[in-house]
């Protein structure tokens, strides 16, 4: 029952809230006011929790920010940004972050797609299988980080070393996985991929289910087999989803912190530090809050630029697919 039908029956028409104000507004003005009123809570939330911290962080990044409220913080201008560019640990952390993003994003995309394609064809225990793959996604980063630390332990040997040394006899003695940067990153990559596959699988499954059946039916009539359908129909149609997932995973990879902090602590000698772990140590260990804020803006700029480039690239590739 609409408001008009209520009014036409002689009942009291409820007053709209903007009629409570003694303002003479045009219909367009009233509509705008209503729209802004509805936007207000969301905008207030964004201003309070996004805009204010962001502007404040930008301000902090321009100072040698002092801890105590009321203390005078010397203005450095772009000094913190210049210092970052001259800081070798900043560059090694950035390189580590980039490598982490490249490996884990590729791994999550590949395995997520493979699992989604495999599960799409599963007829039995479909839900149970999806839950199993999704379980790592909802598990705490802290818990799984500690679990992986145990798995890759070298002395006493964790499960991985036990398997390599005692079960498969591939190596003579336990590998110190977590004490050398190269091997530590293998454990970190494995964790990143394992934890993220469930999320990409769910997104790809949803996208797969929305693909038009008629394309596949037509291709089948033309004699296309499964491989051809995957290459010439499924993947091109999934391209926008792949692009979106690609970008979201990259942003997530650049924000990795907990596994690094818990498994290697950025060591040895900062060699497994990523941008966020380095940023955190600069703020809370060395009390360089201004420098840390500058690092965060540099990272935000890099993530934005990379994501833009990814989007353009993946769109172009999607359009050029046969």
């Amino acid at each position: 029952m609409t408001l008009n039908t209520i009014a036409s029956r002689g009942q009291t028409r409820p007053r709209r809230f903007y009629n409570l104000f003694p303002l003479r507004l045009t219909r367009k003005g009233r509509n705008s006011l209503a729209a802004y009123a509805f936007l207000l809570p969301g905008m207030a939330f964004i201003l309070m929790w996004l805009a204010y911290p962001m502007v404040n962080a930008l301000r902090i990044s321009l100072y040698d920010w002092q801890l105590m409220p009321g203390a005078t913080s010397p203005f450095l201008g772009l000094g913190n940004y210049r210092a970052a560019l001259a800081d070798p640990i900043f560059w090694s952390s950035l390189a580590n972050t980039t490598r982490y993003a490249l490996v884990t994003v590729a791994g999550q995309l590949f395995f997520g797609l493979v699992v989604a394609l495999a599960l799409e064809g599963v007829r039995h225990a479909r839900v149970a299988m999806r839950v199993l793959y999704y379980l790592p996604v909802v598990t705490s980063w802290v818990v799984v980080s500690l679990l992986f630390e145990y798995l890759f332990n070298s002395n006493p040997a964790g499960l991985v070393n036990q398997a390599l040394v005692n079960t498969f006899h591939l190596v003579d003695k336990a590998i110190p996985w977590l004490n050398e940067p190269r091997t530590a990153f293998i454990a970190l990559y494995a964790l990143g991929i394992w934890k993220g596959v469930g999320w990409t699988m769910v997104i790809f499954l949803a996208a797969l289910q929305a693909l038009p059946e008629e394309c596949f039916a037509a291709a089948a009539i033309d004699g296309a087999d499964g491989k051809h359908m995957l290459i010439y129909i499924t993947l091109p149609l999934l391209a926008p989803t792949i692009a979106l997932v690609f970008v979201m995973l990259t942003i997530g990879a650049f924000q990795t912190y907990i596994p690094i902090a818990l498994i290697t602590g950025g060591g040895p000698i900062h060699r497994t530090d990523v941008m966020l772990s380095y940023m955190y140590s600069q703020a809370f260990t060395d009390l360089k809050f201004g420098y840390s804020a500058a690092l965060s803006f540099i990272l935000a700029g890099i993530v934005f630029a990379i994501s833009q480039a990814q989007l353009r690239l993946t769109r172009r590739e999607a359009h050029s697919l046969p």
Binding site: I60, W65, M68, G70, Q255, F289, S296, F304
Partner: peptide, 22 residues
């Protein structure tokens, strides 16, 4: 993307919100 990047920046530790401008 812009929002996500900015959220990343706004996650910086902010120790002195009440400090006056220099």
């Amino acid at each position: 993307l812009l929002l996500a990047s900015l959220v990343l920046a706004s996650c910086t530790p902010q120790p002195t919100p009440t400090a006056p401008p220099p």
